[in-house]
Design a protein around this nucleic acid. Structure first.
Length: 577
RNA sequence: UGGGGUAUCGUCUAACGGUAGGACAGCGGACUCUGGAUCCGCUGGUCUAGGUUCAAGUCCUAGUACCCCAGCCA
């Protein structure tokens, strides 16, 4: 047996040289267990699985689980299966199956030919159920759902046995077969494990194994009218797939005794074990599929892939890279402590990645027209701009410059506050890659609103440096009015204005929805090199942030999503003032 | 009030019983044709109370707080 080297991480194809490549990674408790199992010879290889229910889109919390399960498989030279846990036909849909595969692939994980469905095992599961009945370990209960609940007891009181608990195995078997045959309507019978109605663990008080559901399944159609429950299905699916380490989230800890019970009472081909870690929570968002579904259904957002959503589809559309998300998952760690990660860490990860790769361009979100009075009316120059200072090989491009430009309104103050270094009356600044200009006049409308600036430029500063060595305090971005392309820009902010929207005892979590989470700028101006930018392309608009081309974008109707702002020191200073 | 879990800087997360470390956030500085990036520095933590020990985040005892479980959901 060759011991794997867990430090040999980040072997993932298509993953860039990760940010902190040098550190010896601390081994989390799950990898520690795996190391022990391997060292003790309990397993020769590692087999994990990612088992989503296709009842919604994957979110960043799932990414944590995906990175854990597929990551472990990669590191240990094992395998990770993709398995759909599709045992509840009324909630599951093919659309979700498709989106889940798309998202896992997008993260660049690969299940090879190991794409499985719990519904693939319905026949075997049924056989296992009959076996349990024959062994006197399961029985058909004919109580109603309400009666079963009453018999279950409470947290502090034991349950009571169903009157049907001790009916002969043969009778249960006959009933179970007729359940399968479709003789009974929904809710009339269930199959229950015969465990212990006095167990302090409520899950062990004769849990339901099968229920009748006359519903069409997205894969098996109308082949079945009884469907196995999670607790029966999951452990057996793991065993059938020879999973060694079945990793799930903390809320399933109570289910582990049941997981073990089922496997201990059936002739399974392998004996997997379940381990639980803390699911990811993020500030300023919600992470339950139920709540996300609600946002979609109530149209609080524009679909599962709305860029404000914490779904992988939403983050992708927002402009987040897979590298950023994987780096985030690496950084948050894996432990059993309930935790809520600061959204700022996710933002840090996306900036870190995009800074290295995003081509720089100039765009003006809120334009202020300026006229350079001493610049010839008909002259057009091209200035050379660096595509990416982090990556010299990315080269340069030409950007047209002329007498009339747009500047960012924010970059001018008629009455500049302290520490404001940008343009103001009489002040000289540098136009990025072009010239020094000085503001010589202001044009206002009847309301007193500044509508235009009059400036002069210094021809000797072409390229951005003054031969006399004089300095300016600030460099600002611009576009040439005659050459700029109009673009719609969608500015996104956090979806909720409360760090823990779902955590409040009182009030509805939706009351914390941020009314300003989306601001649309219908007409901003961007430099002409963006004319052919394709959907998904990511740019840094210098001094503003990272923006990505939305799928809604058309050749003459560009649409950009703001992925993240740049760190903004001035905004911080201004806020303090 | 039964059972199962978890407690380390503001937030995540490390630490054979032997100097409580890292990351993000925050603060300060250097540098800069992006108030970006980069670099440097600082702040800040072992849930509480006892006990064992030369030595306790770690072991013991007793508390406290928070999370999960009473679906024919997963």
């Amino acid at each position: 047996m060759n011991r794997p080297d867990p430090s040999r991480s980040d072997s993932s194809a298509g993953t860039p040289k990760s940010g902190g490549a040098s550190k010896a990674p601390a081994v989390d408790f799950i990898r520690a267990i795996i190391n022990e199992d391997l060292a003790a010879g309990r397993h020769k290889t590692v087999a994990t699985r990612f088992p989503p229910e296709p009842n919604g889109y994957l979110h960043i919390g799932h990414a944590k689980s995906i990175c854990l399960n597929f990551g472990i498989a990669e590191e240990y030279g094992g395998t990770c299966n993709l398995r759909f846990d599709d045992t509840n036909p009324v909630k599951e849909e093919q659309e979700y199956v498709d989106s889940i595969q798309r998202d896992v692939r997008w993260l660049s994980f690969d299940w090879d030919d190991r794409l499985y469905y719990a519904s693939d095992y319905f026949d075997q599961l049924y056989e296992f159920a009959e076996r349990l009945i024959q062994d006197g370990k399961a029985y058909v209960d004919s109580l109603t759902a309400d009666e079963i609940r009453e018999h279950r007891g409470t947290l502090t009181e034991p349950g009571r046995e169903s009157p049907f608990r001790n009916r002969p195995a043969a009778e249960s078997l006959d009933l179970f077969r007729r359940m399968r045959a479709g003789e009974f309507p929904d809710g009339t019978h269930v199959l229950r494990a015969k465990i212990d109605m006095n167990s302090p663990n409520i899950l062990m008080r004769d849990p339901t194994l099968y229920r009748i559901r006359h519903a069409s399944h997205h894969r098996t159609g109308d082949q079945w009218c009884i469907y196995p429950m999670y607790d029966f299905t999951h452990c057996l699916s793991d065993a059938l797939e020879h999973i060694t380490h079945s990793i799930c989230t903390l809320e399933f800890e109570n289910n582990r005794p049941l997981y073990d019970w089922v496997l201990d009472h059936l002739p399974v081909p392998s004996r997997p074990h379940q381990y639980e870690f803390a699911r990811l929570n993020l500030t300023y968002t919600v992470m339950s599929k139920r709540k996300l579904l609600e946002l979609v259904k109530e149209r609080r957002v524009n679909g599962w892939d709305d860029p404000r959503m914490p779904t992988l589809a939403g983050l992708r559309r927002r402009g987040y890279s897979r590298e950023a998300i994987r780096s985030f998952c690496d950084r948050i760690g894996v432990a059993k402590t309930e935790s809520t990660v600061d959204l700022a860490l996710l933002e840090f990860c996306v900036r870190e990645d995009l800074n290295k790769r995003a081509p720089r361009v100039m765009g003006v979100l809120r334009p202020l027209r300026i006229v350079i009075e001493n610049y010839p009316v008909d002259r057009i120059e091209e200035v050379e701009a660096i595509n990416n200072p982090e990556e010299p090989e990315a080269g340069t491009r030409k950007v047209p410059f002329s007498r009339v430009l747009y500047l960012e309104r924010d970059d001018f103050r008629e009455d500049p506050p302290k520490k404001f270094y940008r343009l103001a009356p009489g002040r000289e600044v540098r136009l990025r890659y072009a010239y020094f200009i000085t503001c010589t006049g202001i044009v206002k409308d009847e309301q007193g609103e500044v509508t235009e600036l009059r400036c002069t430029y210094d021809p000797a500063t072409r390229g951005g440096d003054a031969p006399d060595g004089r300095k300016v305090k600030s460099t600002i971005h611009w576009v040439s009015a005659a050459h700029a392309l109009p673009a719609e820009i969608r500015l996104y902010d956090r979806l909720f204005n409360h760090p823990n929207p779902a955590g409040g005892k009182e009030g509805d979590w939706k009351d914390h929805l941020n009314p300003d989470s989306l601001e649309v700028i219908p007409q901003a101006w961007v430099e002409p090199s963006l004319r052919t930018a394709r959907a998904g392309a990511i740019f840094q608009f210098e001094r503003l942030g990272y923006f990505c081309v939305d799928p809604d974008s058309r050749l003459r109707a560009l649409v950009f999503n703001r992925t993240a702002t740049l760190r903004d020191t001035w905004a911080k200073i201004e806020q303090r003032q």
